[in-house]
Simulated scan of single mutants.
Amino acid sequence: MPVIHWIYPTNEKSNYYLDTTNGDTEVSPQQLFNDIRQSRSEVDRWVLGTGFRQMRPGDAIWVYASTPYQYICALAQAIDIDFDGDFWHASLVWNLDATQRLMRDPIPRSMFGQIAQRAAVRANQHTAEVLDDWLTTQQLTLPDLDSEPDPREDTRLRTLRTIVQRQGQHAFRQRLLDAYGGRCAVTGERAVEVLEAAHIDGYMGPHSNLVTNGLLLRADLHTLFDLHLIGVDREGKLVVSQGLAGSSYAKLHGKRLSLPSRAQEQPSKSRLAAHLRLLR
């Protein structure tokens, strides 16, 4: 799949913004590069004001230094998109080779023409062609994270992406533990070690980690929920598949779940209904 290009402007509305003559708190291109080079985590999270529903892992993020520079000075690749409850973010891994070259010889806006002011924008056809040509001229390629991994660079990116996802899963579970008072929604089990965060809609990236898209379930019930052998009806009662007839789980059929008291933390009824329609 072709890499999708995004232009991320750096200005007073962005995480980074560039040197002007009226202050000393702005971040210059060289300071930005030093931050990138010295990043210990290897992953930076930049706020996304727009584009978060279209951006995908593997997309190229070109840093556009706006006024007074008006040039592209750095290149990263998104490895995940997430929502922390307040803001959307892109988790970025920097391409140091490309960024070093761009810092020495940036791509001026006069070459690609597209204007980006306050938020990341998807490159139009002309801009994408200019950026593709630049990569070709520089003999650089960007890995497709949805394809078979290259044994070198792709593996590192996939490893970092897995770490970001795992960290997001931990936060998702903690939010559900808080919302459900540390008890399984079905059994009331309090042993935290066996309680898991179950997605109602399957995991499709960190944007799936919403409390309303989750249930706190004992590990065995989580497995049955994922296998569509149990579900939840619109009255909040457990529905057990006929495939479990005769098992100890059949006794749980019709049991009302203990859900969060706050309406904004309760599971989505429409998502539960869609899940229930797949009951085996």
Rank of each mutant, 00 (worst) to 15 (best):
L18E: 08
L18S: 08
T20M: 04
N22E: 14
V27H: 13
Q30M: 13
D44K: 15
D44N: 07
G51E: 03
G51P: 03
F52Y: 14
G58N: 06
I61H: 07
P68S: 04
Y71F: 00
C73R: 05
Q77H: 13
G85A: 10
D86C: 03
F87R: 15
V93W: 14
W94F: 15
W94I: 12
Q100A: 13
R109S: 00
S110Y: 00
M111E: 06
M111I: 09
Q114W: 07
A120H: 14
A123M: 11
Q125H: 10
T127F: 08
L135M: 11
Q139E: 10
T141Y: 13
D150S: 15
P151C: 15
D154C: 09
D154V: 09
T159Y: 03
L160T: 00
R161N: 02
V164I: 10
Q165F: 09
R166V: 06
H170C: 03
A171I: 14
A179G: 02
V186S: 03
A198S: 07
A198Q: 09
I200V: 15
D201F: 12
Y203L: 12
S208L: 09
L216H: 01
F225I: 01
L229D: 04
V232G: 03
L238G: 05
V239Q: 15
S241W: 11
S241K: 11
S248N: 08
H253M: 03
K255W: 11
L257F: 02
S261E: 14
A263G: 00
K269R: 12
L272D: 03
L272Y: 11
R280A: 13
R280W: 03
